[in-house]
Each structure stands twice: as C-alpha cells, then as structure tokens.
C-alpha cells in the first residue's frame, strides 16, 4: 500500500456501559480498496463500522479522514462538533441493515433529500442526479412509490441510491442483506458488485462469505473486539492460519466461492 489512506483509525476502543466491545483497533483504507468485515454476532463488527461515521462515538482512539483528525481535543477530552460530523457523514455514505428510508417521502424524494437539505442543491438538479442513481440500481419505474410499498430488496436498492447520490468518497455497508428474504439477497448483491467494478472505496460488514470472497480486496475477521486475522480473501477465507478463524468458517459451513 503506497497510497495515502482515505480513512484511518488509531487505537479505537468502544465501551457500552460495562461492556467493552472494541478493544484497540488500528486500521486504514486506501482509495479503491474493498474491505469485507466478518465475524460472529456480538463480535463488534457493526459497531466498528458505525464508529467510522460516528453513528457511535468512539470511547477512545482517533479517526482520520483524508489526513484530517476528526474531533477536537482539549484537556485530554475529545469533543465532536456537529458541523464537523455532518461534513464527515456527507463524505461517507452508509447503507443500513434496516434500510432506514424515510416513510413519509416518495422514493425519489428520499434520494433527493440529502442533495437538497445537506448540499443545498436546487431541486431540478437534485432530481436529475436522483433519477440517474435510481436508474443505476434498476428502479427507474418506482420514482413516485412510497417506500412502504416496495419489497425489502427494492427498499435496500433505494437506500443505496440515496447513499450514492451524495457522491461519497467511501461507502459503508452494515449487513445490507441480513434482513432480506433469501430470494431478494441476489438483487442487492448484484448492485453492490456493480459498484465494486467502478473502483469505489467500500467497507462491507456481512455474513455472505461467498460474496465477500469475490467482492473484497481485503478480509478482516473480527473476534472479541480485535482484528483476529487480516489478509486477502484467499488467505483469510481459504487458508485461515488461526484456529478461531478456522472454527468460525467451519461453523458457517459450505459456501460457494
């Protein structure tokens, strides 16, 4: 890795009450990298992802975006001004397990919302971009539908279009297919795959190990709040060195590479 990292994490800890979820993580992503994060439930993989755009506030540690430290440190205490967090989140797109579309807005309004409200773009221009993003995820004919009327797979594709509309520098996917019926998983993974082909920087928390193998340039196995094993998909998924990783992969059973 010769390139200067777009996103860098140093010494990250996260505690919830007396539960120590993340226990010291160092991590960096170079532009164009695609990282798959795997691990058992409760391993802290979602929390880790959510610390990047401050959906969770880190208990300890530093987050750097494109060479800038996020937050201001004073007397050993770090505070995160709202203005700074907003601009960080504007640059990092996130796709949630539960979609989190706005039910009181139509599909196109959902995709336009960030452009109009956050970027202050004129509506006509926002609409043009939103239409293009919806075409990309194959939902051109659903512009004026209410999200509640769409299937889970369609809702998740709208959510991806909403994240893409902001032209984010990094895309964060938090188990994007975990709440979908099995027959709807494919359509969402195909869209994510298309994005991979465009050379975008992406982080994906997933249980779909087969997809992770083809998708990722780097795989991280998280256990007990630390990076237990890190490497290429072949190294981690096919020839894991550590017993814990081997055990995890065995329990997940056969998956098609």
């Amino acid at each position: 890795m010769t390139q200067h990292p777009i996103l860098e994490i140093k010494g990250l800890h996260k505690r919830f009450a007396d539960h120590h979820v993340l226990r010291g993580i160092d991590f960096s992503v170079a532009p164009g990298e695609r990282v798959a994060i795997i691990g058992g439930s409760g391993s802290g993989k979602s929390t880790f992802l959510r610390c990047m755009n401050f959906m969770e506030t880190p208990s300890e540690g530093e987050v750097w975006l494109d060479g800038t430290r996020i937050g201001t440190e004073r007397n050993g205490r770090v505070t995160y001004p709202e203005k700074q967090l907003c601009s960080v989140r504007e640059r990092l797109g996130m796709v949630f397990q539960q979609f989190n579309l706005f039910p009181h807005m139509t599909v196109i309004q959902n995709v336009m919302e960030g452009l109009v409200t956050v970027k202050g773009m004129p509506k006509a221009e926002a609409r043009r971009i939103a239409e293009a993003e919806l075409a990309k995820v194959g939902l051109s004919e659903k512009h004026d539908a209410w999200p509640g009327r769409l299937s889970g797979g369609q809702q998740q594709r709208v959510a991806i279009a909403r994240a893409l509309s902001m032209q984010p520098e990094v895309l964060l996917f938090d188990e994007p297919t975990s709440s979908l019926d099995p027959e709807l998983v494919g359509e969402v993974l195909r869209v994510i795959n298309t994005l991979a082909g465009e050379g975008r920087t992406m982080l994906l928390v997933t249980h779909e190990l087969g997809f992770a193998y083809h998708f990722a340039t780097k795989v991280i196995f998280l256990a007990d709040g630390v990076f237990h094993e890190v490497g290429t998909p072949d190294e981690v998924l096919k020839n894991p060195q550590k017993p814990r990783t081997q055990d995890f992969l065995r329990r997940f059973g056969e998956f098609a590479f």
Partner: peptide
C-alpha cells in the same frame, strides 16, 4: 432510531433532521 441514523448518515444537522424527518412523522 433508524430514522435518526438514516438522516445523520446523510450529513443532516440535528435541526434539519428534526424538521425534515422526525417531526413530519411524529405529527401524524
């Protein structure tokens, strides 16, 4: 909670999030 997170992840400020996302749903 997902509605708050959906808005925050787009980079909305607390005020914009309230006005555009939370209050319209809460009112009904």
């Amino acid at each position: 909670r997902g509605q708050w997170e959906g808005g925050r992840a787009l980079g909305m400020t607390h005020a914009a999030l309230m006005r555009r996302v939370i209050v319209p749903q809460a009112v009904s």
